[in-house]
């Protein structure tokens, strides 16, 4: 899952980036409304962790931008203003969830998984495709009875594919999920990960559509 954290406090922003990366996600950080809008224009994100009080405006501006563009992004608001009317306003403005500061990283991660499930219209905690089962919380995968030992990036690719059964994901889309914008991407990084995945899952599960991308069989 690729996440954009919009938070102006440098220490909290750093904490979100480091902390959420530890859950296996790719996290980018924006400190202002403008940076956040620019990032949303250029990249696709699965979830947005949004602080309301930003130096150049209100986080709700970012939320409205996402909602008017009908981006399929789960938005979790993060704010110090967490009285009931504030929560109601935020949820009515289109937020998927709400978390008051200070918060627990595990709770934030759990809520992100939950809003992500909701965006994808899924009620179960685990992801299934045939014999393949993924637990995004524990970041574990099974094929039948067999435990799969996957690296963070391998799991991310598999998760992206299993979340959208039947859809074809391009190499660029997978790269988006795998790397933050400051990270260097090797020219054939995605191919390498797919290669490793095939070695672990068997050759038939991930199909390559030449020139288009990858999908699950």
């Amino acid at each position: 899952m690729r996440i954009l954290a919009v938070e102006d406090d440098p220490i909290l922003a750093n904490g979100l980036q480091v902390g959420l990366t530890a859950y296996g996600w790719t996290v980018d950080v924006a400190g202002t409304v403008q940076d956040a809008l620019a990032a949303l224009e250029c990249h696709s994100f699965d979830a947005l962790v949004l602080d309301l009080g930003l130096p150049d405006g209100d986080g709700l501006e970012v939320l409205r931008f996402v909602r008017t563009r009908e981006m399929a992004v789960a938005v979790l608001l993060l704010t110090a203003r967490d009285s009931t009317p504030d929560r109601v306003d935020a949820l009515d403005a289109g937020a998927d969830d709400y978390l008051g500061k200070p918060f627990d990283l595990d709770e934030l991660a759990a809520r992100l998984r939950a809003v992500r499930r909701r965006v994808l219209g899924r009620a179960t905690v685990t992801l299934k495709h045939g014999d393949l089962v993924l637990d995004p919380k524990a970041r574990l995968a099974w094929l039948g009875d067999r435990d799969l030992l996957l690296s963070r990036r391998e799991f991310t690719i598999l998760e992206a594919l299993i979340e959208r059964p039947g859809q074809v994901l391009s190499r660029a889309q997978l790269e988006e999920r795998l790397y933050g914008w400051q990270e260097d991407i090797g020219s054939n990084a995605v191919e390498v990960h797919i290669h490793h995945l095939r070695a672990k899952l068997g050759a038939g599960l991930i199909r390559t559509l030449r020139g288009l991308g990858y999908t699950l069989q």
Binding site: I11, G15, D51, A80, P102, F103
Partner: peptide
């Protein structure tokens, strides 16, 4: 609350 959140994280 923001610095506290940062500290906790």
């Amino acid at each position: 609350r923001t610095p506290l959140a940062g500290l906790r994280v």
